[in-house]
Every structure is written in structure tokens, then in C-alpha cells.
Amino acid sequence: MQSSLLFQLIINGLIVGTLYGVIAMCFVLIYKSTQVVNFAQGEFLLIGAWTCWWLVVQAQWPFWIAFPATFLFMLIFGILLQMIVLRPLIGEPIISVIMVTVGLSIFFQSMMKWIFGPWPQPFPDIFPMKSVNIGGLQVQTPYLMSMAVSLVIMVSFAWFFRYSRMGLAMRATAFDQQVAQSLGISVKRVFATAWAISAMVSALAGVVVGMVNGVSSALSFFGLKVFPAVIVGGLDSIVGAIVGGLIVGLIENLAEYFDGQWLHLGNLYTVAPFYVLVIILMIKPYGLFGTRKIERV
């Protein structure tokens, strides 16, 4: 009984962890190419999920149209956000940039609650809810699907950065903005693309989570879990983000297991990742895969 519970929690941890990994990857994408720490990452999930929900439930669009429409909306949203809010702040002190994303986070979160209400709304069943038996465990199909979607996203990210023209331009910009600009890369366009991709992929994750748990403001908590994940993996490493996401997902579920079995403290599930964050910052501030910054006078 106990070992099967542990096994179930580990599977849960891996599934949630891949989602964290995808969101952390979006976060790292923005940080790497534009040097902005995005505290509004969770709100991208929220906005994407609500948009898709609204198109399917209120506007009665079929899902296969509503889903690409959500993507298109997030594309425009990401570009506009970068152009209107983030571009004037290029070159400002780090506190201003952090605070503007914090402000965006509060603004969008409360606007979403204002428009759609604070209560969770279920998605209509688009895919049949079945359970699949894996090694004696019942795993629901949406979870499997989210795992598959996450893996597809990760592979396409890897392809994008390795082979596509835009991906190479983004890596060049992340390496050195001035050099990239002098080689004819439009840094403005790279910045806008980074925000657009990040918003779109986050929205995809938001729709997947919304299908399983229902759409509510709780989605933005995923944005908070990004921080432990990226600190564990290293702030500027895409691979680190995926590994960090998996680790955080596992830690959460293992904390719940230990708590339930022996400690009985209650609610360890939510804070455990933040303790890990502080410990990692103390002993290895650049994470597992991050580049060490060496300062010379």
C-alpha cells in the first residue's frame, strides 16, 4: 500500500514536473534573451486558459478553431506587451524591471478575476476521460496527454534553438547584444519574439492544466513554482529549466509523502520548494547548469 502510494506520487511528480519544466523553459527564454525576470509568467497561463475557455464555452467555437485562435491571441499579446511595457524599461535598473513584471502580474491576475470571477470553471470534455493502466497504476489520459505535449514542446525548443534562423539569432543576442546587432540581427524583433513564444507556450500549458483541473486563478501558482525550478537548474539554462522543473515536481510530491507518513506537519507541499530554493541559493547560487558570472574590476 505504502510503496504503491509512493510510486503514484512519483508519477504525479514527474507529470507535474514536466509542466513546471515547460513553464520554466519559457521563463528562461525571456531571461536569457532579454535579461528580464518575468514575475508574470503564471499570468500567461491564466490568460491563455481563460481565453481558450471563453472561446469554447461562451463563444461556442469548436475546439480545433479555438485552440489556434488562443495561440494567435497570445502571439499578439506577447508582442504588444513587450513593445508597450518592457521596451521603455530597457537599460533601467534591475529593480524597475522586476517591479514592472510584478505590477503586470497583479494587474492581469485581478483583471482576470474581475472579468471571469474567482471560482474555477470546468472545461467541457474535449477528449474522453479514460484511465490507462500502467504498471498497476491508473493514470488519466489528460495527464498522459500533457506529458506528451510537454515532451513535444521540449523537442521543438531544442530544434528551434539548434537549427532555425530565429533561434540562432536569439542565441546570438543572448550571448552578446551589441555583437548580434552589428551582425545584422534585429534585437528588437528578437525581444518581441522571445515574449511571444513564451506567452504562447505558457498559454498551451495553461490550457492543458485547465482541462484537467478547471480554469481558475490557482493557475498563476504555477508561475510561482517557476522560481525554485529555475534556481535549481540555473537561471540561464534551458536544459536546467527542464531538470529543475522535474526536481521541483518530485520534491513537492515526496514532501507530501513524508509529511503524510511521518512528519504530520501539514501543508509541506507548498513551502518545500521554497526551502530548497533558499538552500540552493546558499550553496550553489548559479544552479546546476547556469553559467557562473565572474566579475573583474
Binding site: 510584478v102 505590477g103 502580474s105 497583479i106 494587474f107 492581469f108 483583471m111
Partner: peptide
Amino acid sequence: AAIGLAIILFL
């Protein structure tokens, strides 16, 4: 939302 908006506009 007004708090968030005030932060963004001031910055």
C-alpha cells in the same frame, strides 16, 4: 488592478 496599474504607469 489599480495597484498593479499604478506601479506600471509610474515606472
